[in-house]
């Protein structure tokens, strides 16, 4: 019994690290630009299909694919921001970007439909050299794909954290998130920062897509599922906080595995949703959040 739950804890933490990397892009996007990106999961899904075909057809190592999908998705995010989102934001001036929210929601639905037509409705599982291999640690089993994915995920998230804290561009992003008008008065080129932030947000999506595909099958329902998970993680961790996101991801991973082991997957989704509602009601700044504003 205890062994079963310890195993669930290990699996949950490994999975949660990857979830955190999925969600951190959403968090950054909201933190810097106040954009709630409903297409987040759908973009992840597209990047997962991309990795699937890179691995299956081109035979590229799945973890090397991180670099490719990261770069491709960076470009996608950058261009989306430059030619669509930013144009809408400028028109809405200082208000919350409602049209952008509506647009992303439409984009998410459209991408899901496109995926159904192009890739079909069935789940695709990539075969990698690591698939099915695992390490035996005493009584516990650690899946090799999940372990490698976890390590890459956590390292990527930490790199992002230090990028935002320590570099000029990162500092400009925090400044923009705190007050975009004053940030412009500091000589910050807002459009540039927005495009970079969306690019980085999607680069994280690209990386996590490749990490996921090593153990998680892709289908056209993945988008909605991961949008929902990411929203829970972002709210749990405090909107815009990168470290909070990491913690939120781990919590969600562990809860999912615990309740999945105890009952079943559907129950764990319901528990997560209840947690989401409770946090929104009683601690909207997130578990780590200080009272802001």
């Amino acid at each position: 019994m205890l062994q079963l739950y310890t195993q669930a804890l290990i699996d949950g933490l490994l999975l949660g690290g990857v979830y955190a990397t999925v969600a951190v892009g959403l968090s950054l996007c909201f933190g810097v630009m106040r954009i709630v990106n409903w297409a987040h999961g759908a973009l992840l899904m597209m990047a997962m299909y991309l990795t699937y075909y890179l691995v299956t057809l081109a035979g590229i190592n799945v973890y090397l694919c991180c670099l490719i999908t990261g770069a491709v998705m960076f470009a996608v995010g950058y261009l989306l921001q430059k030619f669509l989102f930013y144009k809408l934001i400028v028109r809405e001036k200082d208000r919350e970007p409602v049209n952008v929210l509506l647009f992303t929601s439409g984009l998410g639905t459209a991408l899901t439909a496109v995926a159904l037509i192009v890739f079909g409705g069935f789940a695709l599982q990539a075969q990698t050299p690591y698939t099915g291999k695992s390490l035996q640690m005493g009584p516990f089993i650690i899946s090799q794909t999940k372990l490698i994915s976890f390590v890459i995920a956590v390292v990527s998230t930490l790199v992002l954290f230090f990028f935002v804290k320590k570099t000029e561009t990162g500092r400009a992003m925090s400044a923009t998130s705190q007050n975009r008008t004053v940030a412009r008065l500091m000589g910050i080129h807002e459009e540039n920062i927005y495009c970079l932030a969306m690019g980085i947000s999607q680069a994280m999506v690209g990386i996590s897509a490749s990490l996921l595909i090593s153990f998680y099958p892709v289908s056209n329902s993945v988008g909605v599922l991961f949008s929902f998970k990411s929203f829970i993680i972002v709210v749990l961790g405090g909107k815009g906080s990168i470290m909070g996101c990491l913690l939120g991801g781990l919590v969600v991973g562990v809860i999912e595995k615990f309740f999945g082991t105890m009952f079943n997957d559907a129950t764990s989704q319901i528990v997560l949703f209840m947690l989401f509602v409770l946090i929104l009601l009683f601690k909207p700044s997130g578990i780590l959040g200080k009272e802001k504003e």
């Binding site: 500092r171 925090s174 400044a175 705190q178 007050n179 004053v182 008065l185 802001k292």
Partner: peptide, 8 residues
Amino acid sequence: GRKLFPHM
């Protein structure tokens, strides 16, 4: 009104 970045 100064407009510092409050969280920095």
